[in-house]
Design a protein around this nucleic acid. Structure first.
Lengths: 335, 335
DNA sequence: CTGAAAGCGCTAACAG
DNA sequence: CTGTTAGCGCTTTCAG
């Protein structure tokens, strides 16, 4: 708004050339202290704020990273934004958000990626979701440096931060199977930061180890991410169902299971145990408190930014695929 | 990465001048259909993506809006991001997020606003919080067009979207007081999208109407936004307290109250009623389900960007301060 | 209807 | 150590 003060104004005010001003705002150490001081004062006096856009044009760097995800994944992404925000702030990057889905016309995700291309973001952070394959493909096509969270992938310009979903599922199921509790059911919310396929793979493997087979048709319960829908669904379901263990891909749906089960007179954890995932506030609020798998979401966000900037600056990278540790938080819904 | 294709390349490919290419990508209708076609084809063939940065420099418009908020307000902001994202996508704006606090050195909020100034965002959306005054002041200082959500303010370049917090509190308290239930307590989380002062004002007014006075020292219970802290606090508190009504500034803390009360043998709503605010998922998950004030957060986000773009485009604006309706959702924690 | 040319505000060689 | 001079990729008068 109005006439912004430019580097020229500062140069004139300080009695130097614009090149010198550029040098001091970029921290070049070849400027004579005396001159630097004069320039600094002029900057102060004029309240000069370097135009990032102009700088961006000149350097072909925007120092902004784009994060793209479907609206429906927001519940997962939000916890990471803390880590993403803090870290990018510390590293002096801006972050722009691009959401896919919800508005459906044409090919939304292609349109969105196109927008980030036009914006010339230096890099992008993707989140595992149903369309991740297409997103990855597009990002690679445009050779945008990127890191994806929640899925194990890498390529020349791409890295990833992930948890070992398969192992999580395997360990849990293996443990129950070992105790002779074989009636296990997996609740699968539609969108998920954690790869559902991997979870299921882990479950299958555990069943296999125990010489049994996991029946994908009967032992997987697809459900909605909206409590208003999942709860009634389970309320109905548990009228004539009961299992040794219900393992859910996300806490919120696990809570729906707990509440619905209890409302059908099923004792939790007495008659049936329940385990959620992500260790969110929902787990704490649930009565009894929900046993859940803790995933360090803040750290994942932070690590993603860090890895991305390493790729951008072509720093030494020891691993483009960085795994992150999970932790079972035993609470009231398991024995 | 690599050599991006520019408007020059397209011009050459199409055998026209760059001015013409510029015209067609900007939808000018003075270009001969024939020429336009040739250019379009060239754009396709070269997969040309106009550089927004360059365009930004030339037009001194970035078509991006910045949203700034403290990390601690994230739980509130997240629900609005849907509306903000969808709407800005529809209007073809990018959105950048800037978070304050958490990293504390120097004057964070001043630093953050400075960043948005440097980024030359066309406008900014602010959210009511403890530092909102300073944020507003800075944004006005730099004459950045803006809208604030959750607080009723306006000025030349500033509008706002808000709910009538005072009325909400007044109505509720008035109703209980009328029924002779005078032992009312207000639970106040630290950060809040809703102006706590206004809520308290409404409560005071209701008490006044009934010839009583609201004791701010005893009837206001400050608490943490972390369930891990609020729940234990209330567990202790309700060992020797009980009220007619507990009204909370946010659902999550209301749930902590419900759980803590029940764990102390207090019947909800039999012995004590509880009302939350914002009508989040927490309210549904709570047992019994929490009565809460519904606030149309998605719409607030959408309205905010709509209002902001009106300010940006200097469109006709009938009201710079737009109120939004709330709605009491009676559920299991009230009679 | 189209092209030439002058910026937008800054960076980055290249001289000096 | 500092100034000159080209751009970065696009928009926008101004001519024609």
């Amino acid at each position: 708004m109005g006439k912004n003060v430019t580097i020229y104004d500062v140069a004139r005010e300080a009695g130097v050339s614009l090149a010198t001003v550029s040098r001091v705002i970029n921290g070049s150490n070849v400027v004579k202290p005396n001159t630097r001081e004069r320039v600094m004062e002029a900057i102060q006096r004029l309240d000069f704020k370097p135009n990032q856009i102009a700088r961006g044009l000149a350097t072909s760097k925007t120092t902004t990273i784009a994060i793209v995800f479907p609206q429906s994944l927001f519940a997962h992404v939000k916890d990471m934004i803390g880590g993403i925000g803090d870290t990018s702030r510390r590293l002096d990057y801006n972050v722009s958000i691009y959401t896919t889905d919800e508005i459906g016309d044409g090919n939304p995700i292609e349109t969105v990626i196109e927008k980030v291309v036009k914006s010339r973001a230096d890099g992008v952070i993707l989140f595992n979701n149903e369309e991740i394959e297409q997103e990855i493909q597009l990002v690679n096509k445009y050779k945008i440096p990127s890191v994806v969270i929640g899925s194990r992938v890498s390529s020349e310009y791409m890295g990833s931060i992930f948890i070992d979903a398969k192992k999580i599922a395997y360990d849990i199921v293996d443990e129950y199977l070992s105790k002779g509790k074989k009636d296990i059911v997996f609740v699968s919310p539609k969108q998920n930061l954690i790869r559902t396929e991997d979870l299921i793979l882990g479950i299958e493997e555990a069943y296999q180890k125990h010489g049994m087979t996991f029946d994908k048709d009967k032992q997987i319960l697809p459900t909605s991410t909206h409590y208003e829908k999942s709860y009634p669904q389970f309320l109905e379901y548990f009228k004539n169902h009961k299992h040794d263990l219900v393992f859910s891909g996300y806490d919120k749906e696990a809570v729906a299971v707990v509440n619905a089960a209890i409302d059908n007179g099923i004792q939790v954890p007495g008659d049936m145990e329940v385990i959620g995932m992500m260790d969110t506030s929902y787990a704490l609020i649930c009565r009894p408190a929900l046993t859940s798998i803790h995933v360090p979401v803040y750290d994942m966000g932070a690590l993603a930014v860090r890895l991305l900037t390493k790729i951008l600056n072509e720093e030494e990278i020891d691993a483009r695929e960085v795994p992150v540790q999970h932790l079972l938080m035993p609470r009231g819904t398991t024995k």
